[in-house]
Design a binder for these strands. Sequence first.
DNA 1: GGTGTCACG
DNA 2: ACGTACGTGACACCG
Length: 883
Amino acid sequence: MSHFVLIDGNSIANRAFYALPLLSTSTGLHTNAVLGFTTMLLKVIEEMKPTHIMVAFDAGKVVFRHSEYADYKGGRAKTPPELSEQFPLIRELLDAFSIQRFELEGYEADDIIGTLTKRADEQAWKTTVITGDKDMLQLVSEHVSVALTRKGVSEIELYTPQEIQDKYGLAPLQIIDLKGLMGDTSDNIPGVPGVGEKTALKLLHEYGSVEEVLANVDRVSGKKLQENLRENVDKAKMSKELATILREAPVELNVQETGYDGYDGALLSEFFKRMEFKSLLSKIKVDAPVEGEGQAANAAPFHFEVVTEESAAKFAEKLTSPMAFYVEMDGDNYHHAPIIGFGLSADDVNLYVPWDQAKEWKAFSQWLEDSTKEKWTFDGKRDTVGLAWHDQDIKGIGFDVYLASYLLNATESNPTLDSIASQYAQVRVRSDDEVYGKGAKRLLPEEDVISEHVAHKAAAIWQSVPVLREQLAENKMNELLNDLEAPLSMVLALMEKQGIKVNRDRLAQMGVDLDAKLEGLTKQIYELAGQTFNINSPKQLGEILFDVLDLPVLKKTKTGPSTSADVLEKLSPYHPIIDAILTFRQLGKLRSTYIEGLTKEIHSKSSKVHTLYNQATTATGRLSSTEPNLQNIPIRMEEGRKIREAFIPSEEGWYMLAADYSQIELRILAHISGDENLIDAFQKGMDIHTRTAMDVFGVEEGEVTSLMRRQAKAVNFGIVYGISDYGLSQNLNITRKEAGDFIERYFSVFSGVKLWMEEIVKQAKQDGFVTTLLNRRRYLPDIRSSNFNLRSFAERTAMNTPIQGTAADVIKLAMIRMQDSLQEKGLKSRMLLQVHDELVFEVPQDELEMMKQLVPEVMESALKLDVPLKVDVSFGHTWYEAK
DNA sequence: GGTGTCACG
DNA sequence: ACGTACGTGACACCG
C-alpha cells in the first residue's frame, strides 16, 4: 500500500535548531538542525515505511500573503545565521537520502504541502504531513493525517479527524476559524483582541465559523467580547484568510515523482562523516539495505583468517611491507595489560594471531624486529612499550593513525580506533566498550568475537592510512607528524618503559607524619565546629561554615556555597576554623593523591613508577601524564615539595638532573608578535617581570617594589592566557577598573603584543583555526558565535594556543634531539620525565659535568627564535634537591 | 557519572 | 549587559 509523507522543511529545521544545543563540527560548521532533521527522517522512514516522500521549503522573498497584509510574519525573529547556513546542508542531506525536495518562488512550504495533499487526497492515498506548525491541522481528512513534532523533533503526535475532534471538538477545517479568532503571534496573525484559545473554542462550538460568530454577535455573552468582535470584523476575516493554507498553488510536481525506494548507504555515510555524526553512522549501515535498492557501503563481506600452529608456515609469506598491525591487550594500562593477540591487514589479507601462537611463530617475531618491514599502527608507543614488557622488540613503525588523526583534529582528544574507522575507513569497528563491556561488566568474550574484532581493527588501520596521508598533506602537516610526533612517540616509549624510581619507605614515613597531623587537625576542627562531620564533603563543610557558624557566602557553585581555597582565604579572619580547614585540605591532598596514590602505582616488576604519557589528549599540543600523573607533583608549598624527596635515581651513586626553560611562553610571544620592547628585554637578559613593572609603572629598576613585580608578573600570565580585565582582577584581588588600567598601560608599552593579539583573533575568525610555529592546528568553532561567552572564550584561546602550543613544539623537538644526542654520544644518562617546560634525567656521576653542559645546549638550540631560549639546570640526589 | 576541589605548567 | 583567566589529572563525595 502507498504511503505519501510530506515534510515541512522550514518548520522541522527551525524546531530542530532550537531544540538541540548548537553543535558544530571540528572545523566550525554548525550541524544541530541537520542532526535533528536527520534523526526525524530516519525515524519516519523506519516507522512509517513511506513509499513516497517530499520535503517542501519556503522560497523567495515575496510570499503572496505579503501583498495582502504588510505585517504578515513581521513579528517573527530574523533567522539566525547559525541556522541559515544549515539549509544548504539539509538540502544535501535530502539528496544523500534520495528524497525529493521542492520549493516554489513566492510560496511557503505550507502551500506546497496543502496543494499536494489535496491531490493525494483526491486519489485516496494514505498521506502524512510532518510539521511543527499547528495550522497544518486544517489539512487533515479521511486520508490525510498530520504529525506534529513534540519536544523538538524527537517525538511526534499523529492527528486524524477523530483526534482533532477529541482535543478541540472541531472539524479539521475549523482550525482556520480558530486561528482567525485567536490569531497566532508567531506568524503575526492578529486575530481578535481579547480572544484566546479558550474563548475561540467556546465561540466555535456554539456558532461553527468566524462568519457565523460575526453574524450572531448580538447573542454572544459578555459585553466586552461583543464589543471586541464588532470592532474587529475586518481583522477577524483577514486573519482567517491569512491562516488558510492554499490548496491550489501552481506546483508542477507530480505526486508520482516523489517515489522513495531507500537511500544510498554510501552517499549517506559520506555525508554523515562530513557532519561528524558518529553515532548515526553505525545506525544506517545496519539498516542500509532498505527496500531493495539501497546498497550499504560495506556490502563486501569481511574476511579474515586465524593463524594456527598448522597454518603459520603458510601465512609467513603474507608478512609483507607495508602492513597494518594492531596489538590487542586486556586493559588500558599497557604497563600491566596482558597481550591477547595481534591483528594484521593488507590489501589481500586480514589475519588474527593469538598471543600464544605469536610467541611460537618465529617468522612473526622476525617480521616485528625487521626495521625494513614497515608497520602501520594505531598508537605505536603503546605497541612498543606493551611488547617491551614481554621482551619483544618492534621496529619499523611507518605510520601511526592515532597521532595522525590527533593532528588533524586535536580537539577530539584521545581518538579511538572505532571513531577513526568511521571517519576514514569503510570497515566498521565496534568500540571496545561494546565488545568487552565497561566498568564492572567488563569480561572477555568468546575467542571468535575477539579475533574478528581485532582483525577489523587492523583492517581499519590499513584503510585509514591513505586518507589520513592525503588530509595531512592538504594541511601541510606531514613534517609535524614525521619529524616531530612520530619520533617523539618512540622517545616517550623509552621514558615510560624506563620508569622512575620511587622510595616507597620514604613515602610511608611521610604518610605516618601526615596521619598524625591530620588526626590532630580533625579533632581541632570538630571542636571549633562544635560537632563532628565529614570535612572532605563540600556539602557538609558548607553547612558547618555557612549555617552553623554563619559565615558570609562570598561565591556560589551550581550546588551551593563555594568552599574553595580562594574563598576560604578571604574568610580566614572571621573564624579560626578556616585556617585549620585549609591545612587539613592541603595535607589531605598530599596523603590521598601523593602518598597513597603514588604508592599504589609502584610497579611490581620494576619497583618504579611508569607513567603513561598521552600524546593525543590536549587541544594545544602539550603532553599529559596519567597513572600516575607525574606532571603535577607538588613544588609550590614546602610540605608538598618534600614528596620530591621520594623520587630518586635508579642506580647507586647516580644523580637527578632537572633542566627547565626560563619564561619560554613569554619568549615565544616576543618572537611571534615581534614586539620590539619585549624582544629587547629578553635580548638584554633582564628579569622579565621586573622589566614589565618598570615599563608599566614608569619607574627605574631600583624603584620596582615587590608588590609592583608581583602585579607585573600576574599581568604577564594574563597576557599569555588571553587577557581580560575580569580575570586579572580576580587573580590580583583588585577591581576590574584597576585591572583594566594595568592592561591598557601594558598594551601602550608593548604595542606589538597588542597588534598581534588583534591580528590572531581576526585571522582565527577568518580561517576558523589557529596554528603554532610548527603548524600544529587547533580549530575554534565558537570564534564566530553570537554567544558572547563562547566567542570570548574562543578569542582567548586564539591568543593562548599559538603560545602554549609552540612551547610544546619546542620542548618536543628538544626531547628528540636530546635522545639522539644521548645515543650518539653513548651516554648512560637517561631522560625520565617531561613536565611541560622541564626535563628530568638520571645521570651517572661521571657524566654529570657533561650533562650540565649538554642538556641546556640541546634545549636552547631546539628552535631558532628572534630571542634567546634560556635553560636553568640543577641536580641533586633526589628530585627535591634538583632545584 | 557529575561536581567540587586542588595539584602542576 | 554579558561573567572567565590557558592547559591538564586525581581524589572524595553523592545521587
